[in-house]
Write a protein that binds this DNA or RNA. Structure first.
Lengths: 341, 341
DNA sequence: TACAGCGTTTGGAACGGTTCAACACGGCGG
DNA sequence: CCGCCGTGTTGAACCGTTCCAAACGCTGTA
C-alpha cells in the first residue's frame, strides 16, 4: 500500500528520468556534474525537471552523499547589531557555496549552547562557527574531538588550537583612549564588564596603556553586562557625583552601554560632550543615530563573518591535514560629536 | 571498499543494536516510541546509546519518515527588533516540539524571498511562516499549491485564504492620534511609508479617523522606507519650516523613523516634546533608551510569533481538513516623555 | 574487419534510518 | 494439554538520492 502523503507526492528523480527517457543516474549527473552529460541529454533532462517542477529531496541527498549542505552558527544574540552583521557576512560566503546556515542564539547560556551543538551534530553539519559562551568550553572540545570542524568567532582566541578570527581589542582600547587624551582629557573612565570577559579586559588594558604614558587616569566602572539599562545606571552614577569628582570622559565597552550613559547624563542636565565626552564600541547603526551622535570604535563585522566562514570551508575541504590559523583584525575609530570633535 | 569518512565513522543504529544485543528496530522504538519497549530492554539500549555516543542521523531519519523536523521562517530582517522578537516567539513553540526553525531574511526582496522558498521546499520543511514582501505574492501561492502549509505573519492579511496573524494597525493609529489629541494637539503629521505598504496606510487611516472627529488635521509626510535615515530627513524638513507652519506633533510609522526625527529636530534646536511631540511605533528597546524616551505603540511581538507557530502546527497536524483562521491582536500605547506626558 | 579509445549512460549497491506484518514467548482459561 | 491472547521483538521493505564500475556506441586506426 502506498503511504498517504498530503497532499501530493512530489516528483522524484525517477519520475524525471522516465519523463526524459534516461536513467536516474543521468539526472543526478545533470544536477551535480553537468559537464559530464551530453548537451542534448542535459537539455532534455532540464526540460523534464522544469515540466515536473522537480525539487531534489535534500534528506535523501545528504544521506547518500554522507554530508549535509549546512553549517552551524552560534552567536550570543543576533539581535545585537554586531552579531547581526557577522551573521550576514558568514551567510554570504555560505550562500556562494550553496550551503545553508543554521543559526542559533546561545543567549550566553552554556546549557543552550550545548543543546544546540547536539542539534548541529544530529544534522551532520559540515562545520560550526561559534562565539563560545565560555573561553574554556568543554562542549567545543567535545565537538572537535568528535570530528566536527570548528572556527571560533571573536572569542576564546587561541586556546583550543583551532582556527579563530577576532578583532584586536587592545588596539581598540588604545584608539579610544588616545582620542580622548588628544582632546585634552586626563580624567577618563572605562565602563564595561564583567571584566572576566576577555574582550572587556583587553579594551581596558589598551586604554590604560595609553592613559599611563599620557599621564592620565582611568577609573573603572565595572558593569554586569553590556546593555542600555546598565549604561543608564553608570550614567546616573556619574551625573550624581560632585562635579569636581567626575570623570570628564568615559569610554564604554559597547555602544548600548554608551547610549545608556548618554541618555542618563543628558537627562540629568549634563552636556555631551561639554561636561562629559563619550566613546562607544562597535559603531552600531544606532550610534550615529543617537541624540548626540556617538564616537565609536568600529570593527569589521561582516568581514569577520566572511573570513570565519572562509576558514571553516578551507578546513572542511582539507580533510585532516589543516593548519589552524588565527586571524586578527584591526579596529578603527569613528569620530562623531559625543567626544567633542 | 569502505568510503573514507573524516575522521571517524559515527556510530549507527546497527552498532547500538549490536552493542545492546537487540535489533535495529528496537533501538528505533526506544527512540521514538519508548513505551512500546520493555523497561529492561529500554535501559540496555539507552546505556548502549550513551556508551557509543550515538546520535541519530537526521537525514536518514527524515528520509525514512518522509518529513523533516523543520519549519521555515522568512522575515524582512531579524535585525529589526520587532521581527527579532517575533522570531523568538516562533522558535519557542517550535522548540517545544523539537522542530528546528530555518530562518531567512528576505530584505524586502521578492527575488530573495522566492529563492528561500525554493530552499525550504528542497529541505521539505513541514510548513512556512512568512511575512511576505508583497501583499499579492505569487511565490506564496505556488508554495501553497504545491502543498506546503503556510501561515502569514503580520502581513497580507486575508488575501490568500490562509491562516494569518497580525496586529490591528488601524487601532494602533487611533491610539497614537487620540493620545496626541488628548494632549491638546490639533496639527498632527504622520511620517511613514511607502503608503503602498498596507500597514503604513492602515495606521494613517486610523489616525485620520480620530483626528477628523476631533477637528484636528493630519499632514502626511510620506517616506520611501522606515529607517533612521529617512526619519532624519523628515525631521530636518520639519525643523526647517517656519514655526507657524509646523506640525506640533508627529506620529511615526515605526520607532526607527521616530528616532531619526528626534535626532534631527533636537540637533536643530527644537525641544521635544515642547516644540514637537513625537510618537513612534513598535516600542523597540531603543525607544525607551532614546535621548528623549519615546512614546510608542506596542505590539505583542513574541505572542505574534508564538500564535503563528501554533497555527502552523495545527494546520500541519490536521492534514487536509483545516479551517484557516485569522488572528488579530490589539496594540497598546506606551506613554513616555517624547509626547509630553 | 577488428579493436582500442573515448565520452556517455546505465544499473545497482550503498547511505542510515522508520515502519509494520509476522513471529516468539509466556501466561491463562477451558 | 491445547488454543488463545497480549506483549515484545525481529526482519525486511522502503524512503530518494549519490556514486561507481561496467556497458555501450561511436570514431579512428591498424
Amino acid at each position: 500500500m502506498k503511504r498517504l502523503t498530503y497532499p501530493l507526492p512530489m516528483a522524484r528523480i525517477e519520475d524525471v528520468a522516465a519523463h526524459a527517457g534516461v536513467s536516474a543516474g543521468t539526472v543526478s549527473n545533470v544536477l551535480n556534474r553537468p559537464q559530464a552529460v551530453a548537451v542534448k541529454t542535459r537539455q532534455r533532462v532540464l526540460a523534464a525537471i522544469a515540466e515536473l517542477g522537480y525539487l531534489p529531496n535534500e534528506a535523501a541527498r545528504s544521506l547518500a552523499a554522507g554530508r549535509s549542505r549546512t553549517i552551524g552558527l552560534i552567536v550570543p544574540d543576533v539581535t545585537n547589531p554586531f552579531f547581526a552583521d557577522v551573521t550576514r557576512g558568514a551567510e554570504q560566503i555560505a550562500d556562494q557555496r550553496d550551503v545553508v546556515v543554521m543559526l542559533y542564539n546561545s543567549g550566553e547560556s552554556v546549557e543552550r549552547e550545548q543543546r544546540y551543538f547536539g542539534r548541529l551534530e544530529i544534522q551532520r553539519v559540515q562545520g560550526v562557527l561559534v562565539s563560545p559562551v565560555r573561553r574554556a568550553d568543554a562542549a567545543v572540545d567535545d565537538l572537535v574531538r568528535r570530528g566536527t570542524p570548528v572556527v571560533l568567532l571573536d572569542r576564546g582566541t587561541g586556546r583550543h588550537g583551532l582556527c579563530c578570527v577576532s578583532v584586536d581589542d587592545h588596539t581598540g582600547g588604545r584608539l579610544a583612549a588616545q582620542h580622548l587624551v588628544d582632546q585634552g582629557h586626563r580624567r577618563l573612565a572605562y565602563a564595561g564588564g564583567p571584566l572576566s570577559v576577555p574582550q572587556a579586559a583587553a579594551r581596558l588594558a589598551g586604554a590604560r596603556q595609553v592613559a599611563q604614558s599620557a599621564g592620565a587616569t582611568v577609573e573603572v566602572l565595572e558593569t554586569g553586562a553590556v546593555s542600555v539599562a546598565q549604561g543608564r545606571a553608570v550614567g546616573a552614577a556619574i551625573a550624581g557625583r560632585d562635579p569636581a569628582d567626575r570623570p570628564r570622559a568615559v569610554f564604554c565597552a559597547n555602544d548600548l552601554l554608551a547610549l545608556g550613559v548618554l541618555q542618563a547624563v543628558t537627562r540629568r542636565g549634563l552636556r555631551v560632550p561639554g561636561d562629559l565626552a563619550i566613546v562607544g564600541y562597535d559603531d552600531i547603526d544606532y550610534a550615529a543615530a543617537a541624540a548626540v551622535p556617538l564616537t565609536s570604535v568600529r570593527q569589521p563585522r561582516a568581514e569577520l563573518g566572511r573570513v570565519a566562514a572562509d576558514l571553516l570551508f578551507e578546513e572542511i575541504a582539507s580533510a585532516g591535514q589543516h593548519r589552524h590559523r588565527q586571524v586578527v583584525f584591526q579596529p578603527d575609530l569613528v569620530v562623531r560629536q559625543s567626544s567633542g570633535a
